[in-house]
């Protein structure tokens, strides 16, 4: 039923196109993994190099399409909340079926994974002997499996949504009982988040790349928990409103999109710097700096809301 909602339909149609493309990539990669030999001047090697170029175009295209589609996905979930009884924002519709949450995580993971693949692809293109070609094609089967999993979850989720069954709204979902991480309280979560940021800055200044990567990884989680428990409440100006999705609505000037874009860029460049070092052995100051800039912007935005609230109301929530 919910497949006929235009947004969901478009998501499905585009995912089918991507599935076809990723299947083509899988097919080509299988050939490359088996027969790749850069030293050979045989006709077959020449053909494989051409096909390898097609794979990188297809994956690039997939990522370029997946990012707007992810925003459309969030928008569609938000719109579904109007139809589902009890839901007031995407939190309700994401939890309407047991697959919704998994689907969301899988979508986020896939965007990171595709981006990492493209980082390796870029490194590969820069080398004269296409050193990492085999490596990047070894990853294609995983790309395929992850994407197929996402598509399966997508179908299970949207086929399973029943508009007659009431769902919970965000305030009922994000309580301290629902998860260990949410039981730590707003202040504490923000303190942990700030310590995390300070560590991140120190490792950046002293160029500890591996440690930077680890803190960057943890930063992704602490920042979201602090956003739900602390910063979010100042955006809503309501201490009981704990929700990562309502931020995306027009009532709060769609500020959520800014939060999540900054967080994605910051953490992605962090991961990408680490992958670059892992694969090529050389560290890229440029990417590292990008990561730090976006992570800092996110931190500033997270501090700005509570601070401006305090300055205008002379009290904390």
């Amino acid at each position: 039923m919910s497949f006929l909602i235009p947004e969901v339909y478009i998501l499905f149609l585009s995912d089918i196109i991507l599935l076809v493309f990723i299947s083509i990539s899988l097919f080509i990669s299988a050939g490359i993994i088996r027969n790749w030999d850069f030293a050979s001047s045989a006709d077959r090697q020449y053909r494989l190099e051409k096909r390898s170029a097609l794979v990188s175009v297809l994956i690039k295209y997939s990522l370029a399409l997946k990012i707007p589609l992810f925003i459309l996905f969030i928008y569609a979930e938000d719109k579904l909340a109007d139809v589902l009884p009890g839901a007031m924002c995407a939190a309700g519709s994401v939890n309407a079926t047991p697959y919704g949450k998994l689907l969301l995580y899988m979508k986020i993971f896939n965007i990171y994974f595709f981006s990492v693949w493209l980082v390796i692809n870029r490194l590969d293109m820069k080398t004269e002997d296409l050193r990492y070609t085999r490596l990047k094609h070894m990853l294609i089967p995983f790309v395929f499996v992850c994407f197929a999993a996402e598509l399966t979850l997508f179908v299970l989720n949207f086929a399973g949504i029943d508009p007659a069954v009431p769902v919970s709204c965000c305030t009922a979902l994000f309580t301290s009982e629902s998860s260990v991480f949410l039981s730590i309280g707003g202040r504490n979560s923000f303190i942990i988040f700030s310590i995390n940021y300070v560590l991140l800055s120190l490792f950046f200044i002293f160029r500890r790349h591996t440690l930077y990567f680890i803190t960057n990884f943890i930063y992704f989680f602490t920042s979201i928990i602090s956003l739900i428990l602390f910063t979010g409440t100042y955006v809503y100006e309501l201490p009981t409103h704990l929700c990562p999705f309502c931020l995306l609505q027009g009532g709060y000037w769609y500020v959520g999109y800014l939060f999540y874009t900054l967080l994605f860029l910051g953490t992605f460049f962090g991961v990408s710097a680490f992958i670059t070092k892992l694969v090529s052995g050389k560290s890229s100051e440029y990417i590292q700096r990008q990561s730090f800039i976006f992570n800092s912007l996110y931190f500033i935005l997270s501090v700005y809301y509570p601070l401006s609230y305090f300055l205008s109301h002379r009290t904390w929530l």
């Binding site: 235009p6 947004e7 478009i10 149609l13 585009s14 196109i17 493309f21 170029a53 097609l54 175009v57 297809l58 295209y61 399409l65 707007p68 589609l69 459309l72």
Partner: peptide, 21 residues
């Protein structure tokens, strides 16, 4: 309007990729 664009653009660009390559 964005949705209209998204309903047509992916299909169209997809049809270009392989011939372009």
């Amino acid at each position: 309007t964005v949705i209209i664009f998204l309903s047509v653009a992916p299909v169209y660009t997809a049809s270009v990729i392989i011939p372009a390559w």
